[in-house]
Design a protein around this nucleic acid. Structure first.
Lengths: 227, 227
DNA sequence: CCCTTTATGCGTACCTCATACGCAAAACCT
DNA sequence: AGGTTTTGCGTATGAGGTACGCATAAAGGG
């Protein structure tokens, strides 16, 4: 038998509590004291199961995602599209995920399962193994970037909605000198930014779809040139 | 004339000092006290010119980049490619840029200049104003995501190089169950991860180029369908 | 059944930071 | 010079991460 007093909590419990706090109040609210309070323990009790706050953050990142979803039948393109949207959804559900620094290549079971899922979508295409990896990495990268942008803008919007109203287009008209920035000036003049809500959720989704479309289009062309 | 004591420093000085600290010791080392010491002032003196640390961070983000580079003559594709590579280079030179949370749509002169530069590359294409914005946003997003990944991996690599050696491929062979992750298992078996240095700088650059190629290919197809 | 061994729970204390507040020095105005 | 305004900055407060050490609980040995 194991000697010594029995542990009443373990790292998984702490991770769960920390995630609960992050979900409810954001990653900034995750302090050792706050997490301990969440579980009804003393602050320093946590350090018996977790070396440091950094380690706790890594554990949180590992546990943040659900299993990858089942992909629809059909073309690789539909599958990858669904995969990308699911990943975006996952990040949006836990936006604090983006603030946790990565410390190495993926080894967690969840990350690998997602990786596998995307690679599976490319089964049946004439791409070489290395190319498949490249395509999936590129897509991950795009989704990650898009999520980051959208999360950042969401936060900004919550802090100061006025920034995203027609005020922004107006402001640009004042700042942008047509001589120094001719291309931007044309876009501003065309009224692209003259909308009531620059951060309309549907627009953000449409932007994502557009970028995703472009990327997948590129993959299709690449596959075409190979077949 | 202005009344009152003359300021001995201004926000730009503080921003410069903060950037010097971040360049030398990372963003984590940027505290108000550390920045003040860097300039030979007292900590609280900074608050006369900067409302909060958050504001300082925003100023830093604005000042982190150089002016956008002159783009090569030729096709929009070459121009956008050069632009994306320049942006990646800029982020790599100041990796801490990625850790600064965005608080709204871009209004800084530098950000706008970069935006204008990319839009200028699309001049002459039959895209509508809104589509140009979409393309540029998508590309920015991709570059940002790629930079984030590469910076994160660089840090991980510095902390523990062994993680990125052949050990990784070996580890995957053990972890990946061909029944649960068939697609990944195939890739692993194909030896894609069996390289001495998974994080070879040239490989990372090649990955970026591949993803960039795919994205631009997609834009080309989209333009083709429009003309 | 008591004593030693071992591991946990956690109170105390220290250090680093961001920042509110207030006073004194400096520069302008009359 | 005296008043006014603005800057420089010392002090103080409160939050957060974590080293340290003691008390407590559980298991094994006699």
């Amino acid at each position: 038998m194991k000697r010594g007093r029995k542990p009443t909590i373990d790292a998984a419990d702490i991770t769960r509590a920390a995630i609960a706090v992050a979900d409810a109040e954001g990653l900034a609210a995750v302090s050792m004291a706050r997490v301990a309070q969440e579980m009804g323990n003393a602050t320093m009790a946590l350090y018996r199961h977790v070396k440091s706050k950094d380690e706790l953050l890594t554990l949180m990142a590992d546990a943040a995602f659900d299993e990858p979803p089942a992909l629809p039948d059909g073309e690789w393109r539909d599958k990858l599209g669904a995969w990308a949207r699911a990943m975006l959804g996952g990040i949006r559900r836990r936006p604090w995920f983006l603030q946790i620094p990565m410390s190495g290549p993926p080894t967690g079971p969840k990350s690998l399962a997602w990786f596998d899922s995307a690679l599976g979508a490319l089964e049946g295409t004439p791409l070489e193994a290395g190319e498949k990896v490249g395509v999936v990495m590129g897509l991950m990268t795009f989704v990650h970037g898009e999520a980051w942008l959208s999360v950042a803008l969401t936060k900004g919007f919550e802090n100061d909605p006025a920034q995203f109203s027609r005020e922004y287009g107006q402001r640009l008209r004042e700042i942008v000198d047509p001589r120094r920035m001719p291309a931007l000036a044309k876009i501003v003049a065309a009224g692209v930014f003259d909308v009531d809500d620059l951060f309309d959720a549907d627009d953000v989704a449409a932007d994502f779809d557009f970028g995703l479309h472009l990327f997948l289009e590129g993959v299709a062309t690449h596959i075409g040139g190979r077949a």
